[in-house]
């Protein structure tokens, strides 16, 4: 029985070799793809596409309580001059503007003190050549394990530029859902 299997195995190998080489190249390519999929994540991967850049933004803020957001990863996503604009509907409206460093200083401790999970609910992209405008619906789940926990949904507007071989976030603006504005229509 063992001998038969060896013969069959050899026959299959021989038939495979007799066919055109395209198939074996395809096999090799698919093996390479599997290897690529297994390869460890690299920071360069974040900025390859518009979608990966915007997803990386949410992932970098998603950390368990006691861990800091990945500020180096966030810094890599943004141009040096990027401004973070946080908009509130209170009263006639209110907006806070930060650089990323200022945002870390002002808001970093809140992320450190909470389990934070930011998820994308939908994304809409307008692009012309090296410029992109992105509309990302998100859901935030947080828990400080001291009685403050909840969820929030909202929308992030990104302005982005493709320079060199990667995308940069040049400006970011976000607001949470209100009674009048729901993210539902932007979920896809």
């Amino acid at each position: 029985m063992k001998k038969l299997l060896i013969i069959l195995g050899f026959a299959v190998f021989a038939v495979g070799c007799g066919e055109n080489t395209t198939e074996s190249n395809d096999d090799q390519k698919s093996e390479e793809k599997v290897e690529e999929a297994k390869a460890p994540w690299k920071i360069e991967d974040d900025t390859k596409t518009i979608e990966s850049t915007c997803l990386a933004m949410l992932e970098a803020f998603s950390t368990p309580k006691g861990e800091k957001p990945d500020w180096a990863r966030l810094n890599n996503l943004c141009s040096d001059s990027a401004i973070f604009n946080s908009v509130y509907a209170d009263g006639g409206g209110e907006m806070h503007q930060y650089t990323l460093a200022e945002y870390e200083e002002e808001e970093g401790s809140w992320y450190d003190a909470n389990d934070v999970l930011e998820e994308q609910l939908g994304i809409t992209i307008d692009r012309f050549h090296n410029v992109a405008n992105v509309f990302q619906a998100f859901k935030l789940t947080y828990d400080d394990h001291k009685g403050e926990a909840g969820t929030d949904q909202g929308v992030l507007f990104y302005q982005m530029a493709f320079v060199g071989d990667r995308w940069f976030i040049t400006n970011l603006m976000w607001q949470s859902e209100t009674g009048d504005s729901k993210v539902a229509e932007f979920v896809n």
């Binding site: 006639g92 307008d126 012309f128 405008n133 302005q159 982005m160 040049t170």
Partner: peptide, 22 residues
């Protein structure tokens, strides 16, 4: 050309926050 604006409504009027164009 193509311009993308981010705008905000504050104090009963619209403002340009940022624009990017090519």
């Amino acid at each position: 050309g193509f311009t993308a604006f981010q705008l905000i409504y504050l104090e009963e009027r619209w403002w340009i926050v940022s624009l990017i164009w090519e």
